[in-house]
Design a protein around this nucleic acid. Structure first.
Lengths: 209, 209
DNA sequence: TGCCCTATCAACCAAATGGTTGATAAGAGG
DNA sequence: CCTCTTATCAACCATTTGGTTGATAGGGCA
C-alpha cells in the first residue's frame, strides 16, 4: 500500500527533488503540489472534494504570500491531513510556532533521503517526528524560561531596533527617559543580555520583532 | 551534444531535484556531486585528472566546513570550469562576494526549472547570467551612493550586529578598542547615522549583513 | 615621488547608556 | 485583602559609547 502526499514548497527544484526521492522509494506517491500556503489550502480543498485527500502534507515555512505556519494552522484546525514541516530554518521561534500551529513533524532540508522517507511514513501514520537537532532546540527552550515580554516592552523593542536613543524613545512613546531605562532593564533581564544591541539581536532571532 | 556539470550543495534533496530537472531536459548531464566546498575541490581534481572535467559547476553558498564563496574563488583561480551560484540568499554582500570570487552567474533557488536549465547552458558557454532580482539588487547598490564600506568595516559590522561591546569587538577582531572606535566612526559617517544600533538597522536594510 | 585610502593605536572629554534603589498607581488573580 | 505584574517616574553613579585630534605604516595610483 502506498502513502499519498501533498508537497508545499515555493522552490520548484525542491519539489522536484522530493518527488525524485519518493519515486525511488516507491511506497510514497505525490498526488498534489502547491507553491505557497494559500494555494495549498485551495488545492487541498479540491482534492479532498474529489475524494483523494493526501495521507500527509509536506510543508515549507518561508513562503509568500501565505507562509507555512498559517497554512499549517488552517489545515490542522479544519481537521485536514497531518503536516510534516520540512524547512531550512531551525530558529526557536520557527520550531515553536510550527508545533503550536499543529505540525506533527519537523525536519530540516539537509536531512538524508532515507530520513525524509521515514518521517513521511511516520507522519501519515499519525506519529510525531522531530529530527535530533530540532529536539535539542526544543529542549533548550524548555530549559530556559520563555521570554514573555509585556506588550509595552515589545513596543519599545520595535522602536529600539530603528536605532533610537533613550531620549528619542521617550519622545516616541510619550514617557520619560527614566521609564525607558526601566523598561530596558526589564527587557535585558528577560532576554538574558546586557545591552540594547544584543537585545535586538536576540529579539530578532526569536522573531519577537 | 550534452553539457556536463558538477553539483555542489549540502542538501541531498536539492541535488536530487536538480538532477531530476536536468534529466527531463536531456541536454545536461550531472557527472559529479559534492556536499561542501572542500569536497567539491577534491572531486573536481579527481574528475579533471580522469579527463572528464565538467563544463560548469553549480554551487550553493551556505555550506560547512568550506562555503561556496571560498570554493568558487579556489576553482576560478585554478582556471577551473565556470561557476553558477544557485542559492537562497539574495543579500548584497552575498551577491557581491560571489561575483568578486569569480562566479559567472547567480541564480536563486526559487527559479523555475526552465530558467535554471538556460542558466546552466549559458554558464557552460561562458556567458554571464544574473536573475532579474539579482540584477536589481546589484543596480540598487550602484544607484544608492555606494555605502562602500571596506572589508574590515563589514567584518566589524557583522560582529557588531551580534551585540558585542567595543571591548568584545576588539578581542574578536584582534585589535585595540581605539581601533574599534575609529572603524565605528567611519562606519557611522558612511552610513549616515550616529550610533551602533542605527548602523545595524541601516546595514540590514541595505542587505550589507 | 607624493597623495589617498585603509588599518592600526593613543589620549582626552562629553554624552549616552547601564545598574541600582526606591516610589506611586492601576489592574489581575488567588 | 494581599500579592504580583505592568507601567510610570526620580536620583545617583559607574561604565560605555561617541567625537576629536593626532600619529604611524603599508598599498595603490597618478
Amino acid at each position: 500500500m502506498t502513502v499519498s502526499i501533498m508537497l508545499v514548497d515555493d522552490h520548484p527544484i525542491v519539489r522536484a527533488g522530493l518527488k525524485a526521492v519518493f519515486t525511488s522509494f516507491e511506497d510514497i506517491e505525490v498526488i498534489a503540489e502547491a507553491s505557497d500556503g494559500a494555494e495549498a489550502l485551495d488545492v487541498l480543498q479540491q482534492v479532498t472534494q474529489n475524494g483523494t485527500a493526501p495521507d500527509a502534507v509536506i510543508m515549507d515555512l518561508q513562503m509568500k504570500p501565505m507562509n507555512g505556519i498559517e497554512a499549517c494552522r488552517a489545515i490542522t484546525q479544519a481537521g485536514g491531513p497531518p503536516v510534516l514541516v520540512l524547512t531550512t530554518f531551525d530558529t526557536q521561534s520557527d520550531i515553536v510556532a510550527a508545533v503550536e500551529a499543529g505540525a506533527l513533524g519537523y525536519l530540516l532540508k539537509d536531512a538524508p533521503p532515507q530520513q525524509v522517507h521515514d518521517a513521511v511514513l511516520a507522519t501519515a501514520a499519525g506519529r510525531r517526528t522531530l529530527s535530533p537537532h530540532i529536539t535539542e532546540v526544543l529542549l533548550d527552550r524548555m530549559r530556559t524560561p520563555a521570554p514573555d515580554l509585556s506588550p509595552r516592552e515589545i513596543e519599545l523593542l520595535q522602536a529600539l531596533a530603528t536605532g533610537a536613543t533613550n531620549k528619542q524613545l521617550a519622545k516616541q512613546l510619550f514617557i520619560s527617559e527614566a521609564t525607558v531605562k526601566t523598561h530596558l532593564v526589564h527587557i535585558y533581564s528577560k532576554l538574558g543580555v546586557d545591552n540594547r544591541t544584543a537585545a535586538i539581536g536576540v529579539a530578532r532571532e526569536m522573531r519577537l520583532i
